[in-house]
């Protein structure tokens, strides 16, 4: 079985998994803590519009996605303050992105891509060039989060208080949205549009079951992300299942196990206490 590791596509898949997991560890905890999961869902679907246009133009779909997601992130950060319901905005961006993508893919002559690939991604076909781009973005994102960590934490914890302390809340919020957008584009390559949301949330949810120290949540999210991705890849190879879906199902299963374990141990503990 181990000889599969000598294949370049498998090496790329492993590298992509590790890079995506680091991203989910760095950005995911902020997204979850700030209840921005559906903003990330909206952003990842606007990427579809960019992918469609890039295919139609014959350009690298990665660039199309980057342009679209960045544009949507900046627009959302700007409009959120003016429009009362950011919910509404997310829904509109979400639908609009998908519609644009479908129209342009429909207009692309002789091109009938598998929509499932967009939705669930295909980690086994990630090209080396995308890995290099992803690595560069991982370094950039980690650096920015490291430098502005205190600022991001204080805004996520208490935005009004951060404003009162003179922290540039709007600029940092915009910065966080851009980081989120870039992360989503990287993760699109690995698990596809829908499952970006899962990879940003499941490892974080597992980490938050284990610790409430924010930094540890970040590290644990990354480690759980890597473990789930690699184990999911192995399962998909052995059981011949789609890789992205296998990764997510495994993650959800582990989260369920931990939740159930905690529930039972609490019951047991309470039961013992009552018996005394």
């Amino acid at each position: 079985m181990l000889d599969v590791l000598s294949y370049a596509f498998m090496q790329n898949a492993i590298a992509a998994s590790i890079l995506a997991s680091i991203i989910c560890g760095v950005i995911g905890p902020f997204i979850v803590a700030r209840r921005m999961v559906f903003i990330s869902g909206g952003l990842s679907h606007t990427a579809f519009g960019g992918l469609g246009i890039a295919y139609w133009m014959g350009a690298n779909p990665l660039y199309g996605a980057v342009v679209f997601v960045l544009g949507a992130a900046v627009a959302m950060a700007g409009l959120e303050k003016k429009v009362d319901s950011s919910d509404l905005l997310i829904g509109i961006f979400w639908a609009l992105g998908v519609a644009i993508g479908i129209v342009f893919i429909h207009m692309t002559p002789g091109f009938t891509p598998d929509l499932m690939t967009f939705l669930f991604g295909n980690i086994l076909t990630v090209p080396r060039s995308d890995i290099v781009t992803a690595l560069a973005l991982v370094i950039l994102i980690c650096l920015v989060v490291f430098v502005f960590f205190k600022g991001f934490v204080s805004i996520a914890l208490d935005e009004d208080y951060a404003r009162a302390r003179g922290i540039p809340v709007d600029a940092l919020n915009l910065c966080m949205m851009v980081l989120m957008a870039l992360s989503i584009v990287i993760m699109l390559q690995v698990v596809g549009i829908i499952l970006v949301i899962a990879l940003l949330t499941i490892p974080v949810a597992i980490a938050r079951e284990i610790t409430f120290h924010f930094r540890r949540v970040m590290v644990l999210s990354a480690l759980w992300g890597i473990s789930i991705c690699l184990a999911g890849l192995a399962i998909s190879y052995i059981a011949e299942l789609p890789a992205g879906a296998a990764i997510i199902l495994l993650g959800a299963f582990i989260l369920g196990l931990i939740k159930a374990g905690k529930w039972f141990s609490r019951r047991l503990f309470l039961g013992r206490k009552a018996a005394r």
Partner: peptide, 8 residues
């Protein structure tokens, strides 16, 4: 006022 969902 603060985000109770933030682990800290």
């Amino acid at each position: 006022s603060f985000n109770k969902n933030f682990p800290i």
